[in-house]
Nucleic acid binder design. Structure first.
Ligand SMILES: [Zn+2]
Length: 427
DNA sequence: CGACTTTGACCAGCGC
DNA sequence: GCGCTGGTCAAAGTCG
């Protein structure tokens, strides 16, 4: 259906261009000939006006079409992503009994320098407003709100007024799903809350998927949350064992029932480093910033999954398993590189943007060569993926969205690097 | 007053 | 079985 619409759009576009040429040519050609009577002039004027109106209408139509197409494209892309992931899951989970352990890589040692934010580039470039980083500097609660405000401005098509009610609804909905989510098996005995038995398997699948597609992003940020284009609803906060900073739990609030969650926690050693862990995939249309983030996490998750399914330490992306990379050749790029610590057997990927480029221009010129590393965790290996490395490039270039997202993240960090107000104190 | 955040409580998993 | 820990819920509080 989408392809049909696409064709329609193109057809109209062609039509319009023809009309434009008509509108451009006929009057001009007929006006220039020497003496034209007033009646003729008015005639032409009315004709022109009519033409103009038609063009306007056409234009609006086209705009609609374009929006529609963009929407469809986005949703299709998301769909494709999830399908790909599901397929890989089907392969991977069967071979590989991935344990559901919580990852412990949130507390990597601090690295040296550079500041990074995620995703705001796209927004700032789209809105041509440099205020993004400043907004995200506000206090915890406000930071959230501002994210929301920006999102609601940004997303005209995202159920603006009904949002809140839906969120409420979704909260309860999620209460059920998340119960089934995390404790699907044992929940049966303890509470009678799950009367939705037939849904169970689906949700179990969804949970698995969500848990498997877990991606951490480490950034330098003074604000309590990085801007990633999504609306997040906080549903919990916890002190964790080996980190004096609390971990905050958020779930996606952009659509009811969206399974995506994220955890945000500051690094114990370096409080300027913010670790954000994303779980799951959105089940709704995303704005470009969120889309970039989502595709990044999807790609990273796929890499992690494929890593977990390959035995030789080489995955489909041509990424080599940790041992080799860790041991040497890529390290020189990151003098202050944290070593991977305490990775559990849980497959997850860490995008480390904390080794920010000192030279912003360099990063902007060649975003993909920015100091960025990915640390993938798989049952049998710890992967540290250097975006600069050839092996990595081979794999990542396959997915333009991935590089786009990375580029956005890096370039954004360049934009925001200079303007870092004083750190606000967390509550 | 509704939407959203905070925070104590609850629950499951895990190790001992 | 017990205690610890992480994840989630939901009532209460806060905010606009
Ligand atoms: Zn979502």
């Amino acid at each position: 259906m989408d392809s049909r619409r696409f064709d329609d759009g193109r057809g109209i576009g062609l039509d319009l261009s023809m009309k434009i040429s008509q509108a451009d040519c006929t009057p001009v050609a007929s006006i220039f000939p020497v003496k034209v009577s007033n009646a003729d002039k008015t005639n032409q004027m009315t004709e022109l006006e009519a033409e103009l109106k038609r063009m306007n209408a056409e234009n609006q139509k086209l705009n609609f079409m374009l929006k529609d197409m963009t929407k469809n494209y986005n949703s299709l892309q998301m769909h494709l992503m999830s399908l790909i992931q599901k397929r890989q899951l089907a392969h991977g989970v069967a071979q590989n009994q991935v344990s559901d352990r919580v990852e412990e890589n949130m507390r990597l040692p601090a690295s040296k320098d550079g500041r990074q934010f995620i995703g705001a580039l796209s927004l700032s470039s789209l809105e041509s407003e440099p205020a993004v980083s400043q907004q995200s500097q506000s206090s915890e609660g406000h930071g959230l709100r501002e994210d929301r405000v920006k999102d609601s401005k940004f997303l005209d098509n995202q159920l603006p007024s009904k949002k809140r009610k839906i969120n409420k609804l979704y909260q309860t909905e999620n209460a059920i799903s998340s119960k089934d989510d995390s404790h699907h098996d044992d929940e049966h005995q303890s509470k009678g809350r799950h009367q939705i038995g037939h849904k169970e398997s689906d949700q179990t699948e969804a949970t698995k998927l969500r848990k498997l597609s877990r991606v951490s992003v480490r950034t330098r940020s003074d604000s309590s949350m990085i801007y990633d284009g999504c609306q997040w609803r906080k549903y919990g906060q916890k002190m964790t064992r080996d980190n004096s900073n609390p971990r905050a739990y958020y779930r996606c609030g952009m659509a009811p029932g969206c399974p995506v969650r994220k955890q945000v926690q500051r690094c114990a050693e370096d409080k300027s480093i913010l670790t954000t862990t994303y779980e799951g995939e959105h089940n709704h249309i995303l704005n470009p910033v969120a889309m970039a983030m989502a595709t990044t996490t999807s790609a990273a998750a796929r890499m992690s999954l494929s890593n977990s399914t390959t035995s030789e330490g080489m995955n489909e992306f041509g990424l080599r398993a940790a041992g080799t990379q860790m041991a040497g050749t890529q390290m020189p790029f990151f003098p202050g590189l944290p070593t991977l610590s305490a990775f559990s057997t849980f497959p997850a990927v860490t995008l480390d943007l904390t080794n920010g480029p000192i030279n912003p221009v360099q990063g902007l010129m060649n975003p993909v060569s920015g100091n960025m590393q990915m640390q993938g965790q798989a049952p049998f290996c710890n992967n540290q993926i250097d975006v600069q490395s050839g092996s990595m490039m081979g794999g990542l270039r396959v997915d333009p969205n991935f590089t786009a997202a990375l580029a956005a993240a890096i370039a954004n960090s360049m934009l925001t690097a200079g303007s870092q107000p004083a750190m606000q104190s967390k509550k």
